[in-house]
Amino acid sequence: MDGNQNLLSRISVDPNICSGKPCIKGHRIWVSLILGYLAGGTSIEEVLEAYPSIEREDILACIAYGAE
């Protein structure tokens, strides 16, 4: 599995969870929420402080998902 595919495996799209919005797997944190924070100037470190249950790779997965 290449790097992007490995990252994308951290994203879940399930019609029964968060109305099918892409989320970080195992969490109800939307990809769009994380991307919105980053686009607004919030650093990865600040997002990790706000959401201590996720990892840096989860944020990178959100970025990779947005790039697809």
Results as ranks from 00 to 15, higher is better:
Cys62His: 04
Ile63Ser: 01
Ser43Arg: 13
Tyr37Val: 06
Ser12His: 07
Asp14His: 03
Gln5Leu: 10
Met1Cys: 05
Gly41Asp: 03
Ser43Phe: 10
Ile17Gln: 04
Arg28Trp: 08
Pro22Asp: 09
Gly26Thr: 04
Cys18Ala: 14
Ser32Glu: 13
Gly3Leu: 08
Gly40Leu: 05
Ser53Glu: 14
Lys25Gly: 04
Leu7His: 05
Ile59His: 02
Gly20Tyr: 11
Glu68Leu: 10
Cys18Ser: 15
Lys25Ala: 12
Lys21Tyr: 07
Pro15Phe: 03
Asn4Cys: 05
Cys18Phe: 11
Ile63Gly: 01
Arg56Val: 09
Ser53Val: 12
Ile54Phe: 10
Leu60Arg: 04
Glu57Asn: 11
Ser9Asp: 13
Tyr51Lys: 08
Gly36Glu: 14
Gln5Ser: 15
Arg10Pro: 05
His27Gln: 09
Ile24Ser: 00
Gly20Gln: 11
Pro15Thr: 05
Leu8Gln: 09
Ser19Gly: 09
Ala39Ile: 06
Lys25Pro: 01
Ile59Cys: 02
Glu45Trp: 03
Glu45Cys: 03
Ala67Met: 13
Ile63Met: 03
Leu35Met: 14
Ser53Gly: 05
Pro15Tyr: 06
Ser12Cys: 13
Ala67Glu: 14
Ile24His: 02
Lys21Cys: 04
Ile11Val: 13
Leu35Trp: 01
Lys21Val: 00
Asp14Ser: 10
Val47His: 06
Tyr65Gln: 10
Trp30Phe: 12
Ile17Asp: 03
Asn16Thr: 13
Asn6Tyr: 04
Asp14Asn: 12
Glu46Asp: 15
Gly3Asp: 10
Val47Pro: 01
Ile44Gln: 08
Ile44Asp: 06
Ala50Glu: 12
Lys25Gln: 02
Ala64Tyr: 02
Arg28Lys: 10
Ala50Val: 04
Gly40Tyr: 04
Ala39Lys: 15
Leu48His: 04
Ile17Ala: 02
Gly26Ile: 06
Glu49Leu: 14
Ile24Pro: 00
Ile34Tyr: 00
Cys18Asn: 07
Lys25Asp: 00
Ile17Lys: 05
Glu46His: 14
Arg28Met: 11
Arg56Lys: 15
Val47Asn: 06
Leu48Met: 11
Glu45Lys: 14
Ile54Glu: 01
Ile63Gln: 09
Leu8Asp: 06
Gly40Ser: 13
Ser19His: 11
Lys21Ile: 02
Asn16Arg: 08
Met1Lys: 12
Ala67Cys: 07
Ile34Asn: 00
Ala61Val: 09
Ile24Asp: 00
Leu38Glu: 11
Glu55Thr: 14
Glu46Trp: 06
Ile24Arg: 00
Ser12Gly: 11
Glu45Leu: 09
Ala39Thr: 13
Gln5Phe: 07
Glu46Val: 06
Leu7Cys: 04
Lys21Glu: 09
Lys21Thr: 00
Asp2Glu: 09
Ala64Gln: 10
Leu8Ser: 06
Ile63Lys: 12
